[in-house]
Simulated scan of single mutants.
Amino acid sequence: MKTFVPFSQLRQQPTIVVDSTGLGAALTLAHWRGAATPEALRDDTSAGSVLRALRAPATGGLDAPAVTANHFDVDGFVGVWSLLHPELALRHEHLLRLTATLGDFRELDWYDPLADHALKLVCWLNAEEKARFYEPFGAPARRRREDEASAEKFEWFLPRFQEILENPEVGRAAWEPEVKRVQQAVAHMQSTVTTTRAYPEIGLLVVCTPVPLPYYALFGSSGGFDMVLSLYDENWYEFEYKYTTWIDLESRSTLPRLPLSGLAACLNGQEQSPHQWTFDGVTDTGPLLRLDGKRLTKVQRYADPDQRPIYSSSIEPETLEQEVVAFFRERYARIQPRRYWTWAEIRAAGEATNS
């Protein structure tokens, strides 16, 4: 039997670290870039690495009595819970993999028989987290450290998750509002009002839809792409590097993130509105390029696109799409996709393309 311990207690006993890194871990099971996850256990999600480990019981360090993580999110929680309930986790492996992927990458195959079940689990976790604790990335605003404050979330969710996993109706009051909101947005994405254009050579998906939507709908069918350009009515636009390029993705090769400064400068040279194109750095979990993006807090940037302010651009959508595609085609022309980029290699690639 294993127990969950706060991250601060990592070195007090042999401990498995999930979806995090820490010195002194008996075993690391994380998809973070450069994490010491054993090669045979690498997976797109940290929960996936945990599930691989459970199918390889001879894995060194897997017998450690304690489990920890330095933050709370869906992927990390599913991984921690699975280590504490190995038989149940393997019984529900496919569902847990869908849940972790939706939580971290916001991707989901809506035609999978378990898609609705996974959505309910994620929405339950999200709703209860916000209602009982604080929203993701909200700890600093409360003058708390995430690695300390998140332990309270684990302690509340861990004994309650099995019941929801096996009978999601128990948590309907919590998950239903967000599930309905996402399902309505998915119907919107699958209707004739939405069109998409794919540029697989640069990993870009362009989504044209009237209004901003929840991420689970907007990114749900974006599997295999690492950048999304959203073109809305009223000349509202957002570009985002997905979280798939922040971590070490196992299932496929990726291109490295590039600095968005050059693209922002190009767009600002054309922008006639009172707003400026701003961007986040390559090490942000999900760098955004948008008008007046620097006014957003981290909580707002992580929140759904329909929950943050957005401004009209003077640039027409066809022109914007052409500029974005041309920017990345030129800079990615001499870069080959591969797995396991280091941050140093990503920065070097960005410097080379800007020279």
Rank of each mutant, 00 (worst) to 15 (best):
G24I: 14
D304V: 02
Y241S: 00
L10K: 12
R33Y: 08
L288F: 09
T37C: 15
V206D: 02
K298N: 12
T99D: 00
Q336S: 07
P337Y: 11
W175D: 02
Q300A: 07
A56V: 10
Y340F: 10
L291Y: 01
P200V: 02
N70P: 14
F137V: 03
M189Q: 08
L95I: 07
E155N: 15
G281K: 08
I16T: 08
H188I: 07
L98Y: 00
G269P: 14
Y216T: 05
P86L: 12
L218E: 01
Q307G: 09
Y215S: 00
A217P: 02
P317N: 04
S314F: 13
A264C: 14
L98I: 00
K294E: 13
A53H: 12
I247S: 02
R257Y: 08
G48M: 13
T45C: 14
R331H: 11
T283R: 09
A348W: 15
D75V: 01
A66I: 07
A264R: 07
L263W: 06
V193G: 07
F279G: 01
I202Q: 05
S313E: 08
N268T: 13
F137H: 08
A53D: 06
P14S: 02
Q276I: 07
K153S: 02
L260Y: 01
T319F: 15
Q9A: 11
T244F: 00
A56S: 14
V299D: 00
G24N: 11
V50D: 08
P113K: 12
Q9K: 14
A139W: 11
R143S: 03
Q162H: 15
E87W: 06
S313V: 15
W343D: 02
L229Y: 05
V182G: 00
S150V: 03
Y241D: 01
G22R: 13
A303T: 02
T3W: 11
R329D: 08
L296N: 02
D75L: 03
K130N: 07
I164M: 15
E271I: 15
F105L: 09
D248Q: 10
A115P: 01
F154D: 04
Q307M: 14
Y340S: 02
R339N: 03
A56N: 12
T209W: 06
F279M: 00
T278R: 08
